[in-house]
Each structure stands twice: as structure tokens, then as C-alpha cells.
Amino acid sequence: MSQSRKRIFIADDHQLFIDGMKLIFGRHSDYEIVGSGSDGHAILDFIACHEVDIVITDINMPGVNGIEATEKIKLINPSIKVIAVSMVNDYASVHKMLQSGADGYVLKNAGADELLKALEFAEGGEVYINKEISDILLKGFRFNQSSEAKRIKAIREDLTQREKEILGFIVKGYSNQQIADTLYISIPTVKTHRSNILSKCDVKNTASLVRFVMENNLLN
């Protein structure tokens, strides 16, 4: 058997899908299916003992799902190409799958030619998404931007004038003592304001607060 053939592992909890993949790749001399399984555990167990070039995986599977499996695959061997083939078409899932390191995303309503195209893209070092997936990502991104903008606006309106004043000093690196001296208030009062500001901005510490303020232009 030629060593140039790309070795594929397929993970899906529907055997009918796996059988269909075997028929598709059985007609292509560039690829060979070296293994299959019904969840992410099967992928990880297999690649620990066998050479694999490409993993084709569903997202929603029992045990370790496709997103979790992809993250682990890329940690174990970043050179393995991962193509998601799924019916899942919501923004959160698509975004998480690509963020986890997937090299392509193909919906199950696509044809075999599109899957083969995705493999070619991945082998060439590119990430494959078609127009439908691109539209899903764009709409989700715009929605998230809009939601985040509303959240920032609400935080800005919720901060009192005194809290904004103190926040400005915090961003400049003033200590509680310096803020208290500048505003002629007690240190406990400064601490109370600081605690309220952290709570309203939903951050845990001063470093995160300063970063949040700068990234979101909160004081302007």
C-alpha cells in the first residue's frame, strides 16, 4: 500500500455515516480509512497507537465530544488535520469547533465533493469554511458585538459619578491612600467604591479592571 495515501480516522456516533464515508473514500486512491469510532475517546485512543493524518469528526457525540477531542488532538499532534462534519449549525458550536483548532467545518447536507475540497484546503494549510458557515459566523459575531455593546453601555450608565472618578484614578495607578488624599475621603470609603466598581464591571481584580476599562473605552 502506498505510503503517500492520507490516513483518515472517522468519529461519529451513527454507523450509517461511517459506512457512507468508507464508500466515498474507497473510490479515492489518495486516502485510506485506517480506523473509526463513535466518540472522542475512540479518536484519542487510536492516535495514541497509530499514525493518522486526518480526523473527520462529528461534534455532538457521547463521552468526549468533537470540540474537546479536537483540542486534545492538537495538543498531542498539531500536524493532524481535523475536519468537523456535522448537522450542528449554530454560531456557538461552529465558533468553538474552529477555535479548538479544527481545520475545516462541513455540514452534513453538503456533498462528497465539498468534503474532499475541505481536505485539500486543510492539507494546504488553510481552514475550510463555505459560504453558509461563513454567514453563520458573521451573524453570530455581529450579534455578540451588539450584545456586548449593550452590556458596556449598561455598565457605564450604572456607575455613579463618584465611581467613575475613582475608576479614573485606579486606571492611572493611584493607590487607595492616594485616591483618599486626592478626594478628601477615607480609605474605607475608597475600598467600598472599588469593591462596587469591580462588582459592576464583573471582574475579579484591579489588573482585570484596568484592562476591561481600556479595552471598552469605559470612561469616554
Rank of each mutant, 00 (worst) to 15 (best):
L137H: 07
L137V: 07
D58A: 10
E120W: 02
N109H: 13
K117V: 00
D158G: 07
I76Q: 14
A180Q: 04
D58K: 05
I129M: 07
A149R: 15
S175N: 05
F169M: 14
K191V: 06
G173Y: 05
E123F: 02
S199G: 11
D135Y: 10
E157H: 12
V64S: 10
L98K: 03
A42C: 02
E157V: 07
L209Y: 01
R7G: 04
D158L: 11
N109S: 13
E215D: 12
K117W: 01
I166C: 07
D12P: 09
H95S: 12
I76V: 15
S86L: 11
H28S: 11
K131Y: 04
S2E: 08
G35A: 10
G37A: 02
Y105L: 04
L98Q: 04
A118M: 07
N130W: 00
V85T: 12
H50T: 11
R162T: 10
F9C: 03
F141P: 01
C201S: 09
K191L: 01
H28E: 15
E163W: 03
Q15P: 02
I10W: 04
P78N: 14
I197W: 06
S86F: 11
I197T: 10
H28L: 12
K153L: 13
F17D: 10
V127S: 01
R211W: 00
D39R: 01
L209I: 05
A69C: 11
I18K: 09
I155S: 02
L116Q: 05
I197N: 02
R194L: 01
I129N: 06
M61S: 12
E132G: 00
C201N: 02
G40Y: 02
S147Y: 13
G35N: 08
K139N: 13
K131S: 11
L116W: 00
G101Y: 08
S38M: 09
L219R: 00
D135N: 13
I155N: 03
K96D: 06
K164D: 06
K131L: 03
E68Y: 07
R156V: 14
D53F: 07
Q15I: 13
F169C: 03
S195M: 02
D113F: 04
M97W: 01
F169H: 05
L138E: 15
A102F: 01
N65G: 11
T206I: 15
Y128G: 00
I170P: 00
Q178W: 08
A180L: 10
S208V: 06
C49H: 14
K200F: 04
N130S: 08
E163D: 09
L115N: 06
S2T: 05
K200M: 10
D158A: 15
H28F: 09
I8Q: 05
V171K: 09
I10T: 09
K108Q: 03
A154F: 07
